[in-house]
Nucleic acid binder design. Structure first.
Length: 544
RNA sequence: GCGCCUGUAGCUCAGUUGGAUAGAGCAACUGCCUUCUAAGCAGUGGGCCGGGGGUUCGAAUCCCUCCAGGCGCGCCA
C-alpha cells in the first residue's frame, strides 16, 4: 500500500514538514479501511485545530483511483475507504505472484542467529523447553520469510559440572548393576532414564568398569551419557517440528582455545583483574551491577567465561543480530552478557534476549511439582503424545513470551478437540475440499481467469479480500516486533471471516463466472492460511 | 531489601509500539445438517482494564506510587 506516500506528497504540497506517518488498519468498518491520526499529531506543531489540518490534507489528496472516499472523523482522523476496483486489482496481483505478496525483503539477507532451547543434555525435555522451542522455531521461520538469513543454534552445555554429575549418576547406577556400593552423588540425577543409560552401558561393556573408580573412566561415562541424551533431545525436537542448523559445543570452546584466547584478550585490554585468588571481569564498567568472576580461585572457569567467548564467536561469525531465547529464570544474566559484548567493542544492542516466562504445569487445577534432579517431571514427549503436536504448538503461540503460562493438562486435553488451531486448519481443509469438488465439476483450479475477481461484490467477500490484502502489514509488524504470535491471531481472524462466508454463500454455484471469482478468493485465502501455518510450524491438512 | 515479568469477561489469553464504542476462545443459555466437510453457522448474557496519582487533543498501553502473584539476585550451571 502506498497510502503513506500519498499523504506525504499531500503534505509537501501544503508546505508542511511531514512527521513519521502512522497508518493503522481500522477496527470498526465505519472508520474506513485505513486510518491515520497525522492531523492530530500536527495540530500541536502547527497551532491549528486538527479538523482544519485534516481538511487541508484531504483536499490536497484529491480523489485518486485508489479511494472510494476519504473522510474526516472523530477528533481529526483521516479515514480512507478503498475503492472496489483497487481492491480487485490488488487481489489479482496477489494471485499472479503469491510469493512476492506473502514474503518481503526487509532483512536484505542480513545474518541473524537465533539461539534457543539449549537445554542441558542431562535429561529429557520438559514443557518449558517446549515453549522456548516453539517460539524460537516460529520466529526463525518468520524472519526467514522476511528475507533474513537465519541460523538456528542449539548451545550444548557439554562441559562443566552438570554433565559431570550426569556421568557420575550413571556411573553410580552402573555400579549397582555390578553389585557394588557406590554412594550416589548428592546432587545427582535420580530419574528413571539414568538407570536406562547405565543398563545400556552394561549391556555394551559388561563389567569392564566395575573395578574402576569414577575418576578413571569419567570421560567415557560423561560422554556416553550426554551424547545419548542429546540424541534423545534432537529426536524429540524434530518430532515437535523444531530443527537446528547448528549445535555449538561448549567443550570445544575450551579445547579449541577460544576461552583462553578471549581471557588473554581481556587481560590485554585491562578488563580483568585478580582479587581474592580469582580473576574478575570488570562488568560494572559496562553497566552490570557488580563485577563477575571468570576464573575461580580453584582455577576452574565459570560458565560466564565460556559464555563471553561464545558470544564473541557469534559476533565474529558475521551475525548482525543475536537473538537469545532464554527461560525467564535467566533474566539476571542478560546485563552481564550485554556488558561483555560492550566490553569487546560491539554494540550491546545487537543482542536481543527474549525471556520466555515460566510454564507452570497443572493437573486438574493443581500444580505439578517438577524437579529434574529428583527425576520427577512430565516430559515434552508425554505432553505431545497426549495433547498433540499442532495443539501444543498453538497453545504456546497464542501467548506472548512475557506472559506466565498456566498449562493445565486436563484442560488442554479437554480442549484439544476444540482448540482454535482446528478452527484455522478446518478453514484450510474446507477450501481444499471445494477445490477437489471444483475439479470434478470441470474447473481447472490452476487456470482460472484472474479478471473474474471483479465479480466479487458481496460485503463479506470484500471484507475477506481486505483481510487477505492486509496480511503484509501484519506480517511486517510481526517481523519488526519479532513476535510470531501475531500471526496466530491473524489466522484466527481470517478463518473467523471465512467460515461465516462459507456457510452463507456457495462457492460452486449456478453462475460459472461467479464460481470462478469465488474460487479465486478461496485460492487467495488458502495461500495466506498455508503461509501463516507454515510460519507457525503447524500442519495445513487438506482433509480433516 | 534490590532487579525482571505479570495483573483485562467465570477460566485461558489478545489488544496492531499512545488512537475512535474493550476483543477472541472456552464455559453458560437458544436455535441451524436433503445442496461445496456441523472440527461449522446464527444469536444472548458477561468488564472499576489490580488501586491511586500524573503526562496530553487522547492512556489498558508511557511515568510515579501502592497492592497481589511468579522468577531471579553465588568463586552454581
Amino acid at each position: 500500500m502506498d497510502i503513506r506516500n500519498i499523504i506525504k506528497s499531500a503534505l509537501e504540497r501544503l508546505g508542511i514538514d511531514a512527521p513519521p506517518i502512522e497508518l493503522e488498519v481500522t477496527r470498526a468498518e465505519a472508520h474506513g479501511d485505513i486510518s491515520t491520526p497525522v492531523a492530530m499529531v500536527l495540530a500541536g506543531q502547527l497551532k491549528k485545530p486538527p479538523g482544519k489540518i485534516a481538511g487541508d490534507i484531504v483536499n490536497a489528496i484529491g480523489n485518486g483511483e485508489m479511494f472510494e472516499k476519504v473522510e474526516i472523523a472523530g477528533p481529526g482522523f483521516i479515514n480512507f475507504f478503498l475503492a472496489k476496483d483497487y481492491i480487485h486489482k490488488k487481489l489479482a496481483d496477489l494471485l499472479k505472484d503469491p510469493g512476492k505478496f506473502v514474503r518481503c525483503d526487509m532483512g536484505r539477507g542480513e545474518k541473524v542467529q537465533i539461539e534457543f532451547v539449549s537445554a542441558n543434555p542431562t535429561g529429557p525435555l520438559h514443557l518449558g523447553h517446549g515453549r522456548g522451542a516453539v517460539v524460537g522455531s516460529a520466529l526463525a521461520n518468520l524472519l526467514e520469510n522476511a528475507g533474513y538469513n537465519v541460523e538456528r543454534e542449539f548451545y550444548v552445555n557439554d562441559a562443566g559440572r552438570q554433565v559431570h554429575l550426569l556421568g557420575e549418576s550413571v556411573f553410580a547406577r552402573y555400579m549397582e548393576l555390578c553389585g557394588r556400593d557406590y554412594s550416589f552423588p548428592e546432587d545427582g540425577y535420580r530419574g528413571e532414564y539414568i538407570i536406562d543409560i547405565s543398563k545400556s552401558i552394561y549391556n555394551e561393556e559388561g563389567d569392564k568398569y566395575c573395578n574402576k573408580g569414577f575418576d578413571e573412566c569419567s570421560d567415557y561415562f560423561i560422554d556416553y551419557s550426554y551424547m545419548l541424551m542429546l540424541d534423545d533431545i534432537k529426536v524429540n525436537l524434530e518430532d515437535f517440528g523444531v530443527v537446528f542448523d547448528s549445535f555449538r559445543s561448549e567443550k570445544e570452546l575450551y579445547s579449541k582455545g577460544h576461552v583462553d584466547s578471549l581471557i588473554e584478550f581481556l587481560r590485554e585490554k585491562n578488563l580483568v583483574y585478580e582479587g581474592s585468588g580469582a580473576t574478575w571481569f570488570r562488568s560494572t564498567e559496562f553497566g552490570d551491577d557488580k563485577d563477575r568472576v571468570i576464573i575461580k580461585s580453584d582455577g576452574r572457569y565459570t560458565y560466564f567465561a565460556s559464555d563471553i567467548a561464545y558470544h564473541f564467536l557469534k559476533i565474529k561469525g558475521g551475525f548482525r543480530e543475536l537473538i537469545n531465547i532464554w527461560g525467564a529464570d535467566h533474566h539476571g544474566y542478560v546485563k552481564r552478557v550485554r556488558s561483555a559484548i560492550d566490553a569487546l567493542g560491539f554494540d550491546p544492542g545487537r543482542l536481543k534476549v527474549i525471556l520466555v516466562q515460566m510454564v507452570s504445569l497443572l493437573k486438574a487445577g493443581k500444580p505439578v511439582q517438577m524437579s529434574k534432579r529428583a527425576g520427577d517431571f512430565i516430559t515434552l514427549r508425554e505432553v505431545m503424545n497426549e495433547i498433540g503436536r499442532d495443539t501444543t504448538r498453538f497453545i504456546f503461540l497464542t501467548r506472548k513470551p512475557d506472559s506466565h503460562l498456566e498449562f493445565d493438562l486436563d484442560i488442554a486435553k479437554k480442549h484439544s478437540a476444540e482448540n482454535p488451531v482446528f478452527y484455522v486448519q478446518y478453514a484450510y481443509a474446507r477450501i481444499n475440499s471445494i477445490f477437489r469438488k471444483a475439479g470434478e465439476e470441470g474447473f481447472d483450479p490452476d487456470n482460472l481467469e484472474y479478471s473474474h475477481v471483479k465479480m466479487l461484490s458481496e460485503d463479506e467477500e470484500l471484507r475477506l479480500i481486505k483481510k487477505v490484502l492486509f496480511y503484509p502489514i501484519l506480517f511486517e509488524g510481526a517481523v519488526n516486533a519479532r513476535e510470531p504470535h501475531r500471526i496466530t491471531y491473524y489466522l484466527q481472524e481470517l478463518a473467523g471471516i471465512f467460515h461465516p462466508y462459507y456457510s452463507r454463500h456457495r462457492v460452486l454455484g449456478e453462475d460459472r463466472n461467479i464460481t470462478v471469482a469465488r474460487l479465486l478468493l478461496c485460492r487467495a485465502i488458502m495461500i495466506i492460511l498455508n503461509e501463516g501455518l507454515s510460519i507457525l510450524g503447524i500442519s495445513a491438512p487438506e482433509k480433516m
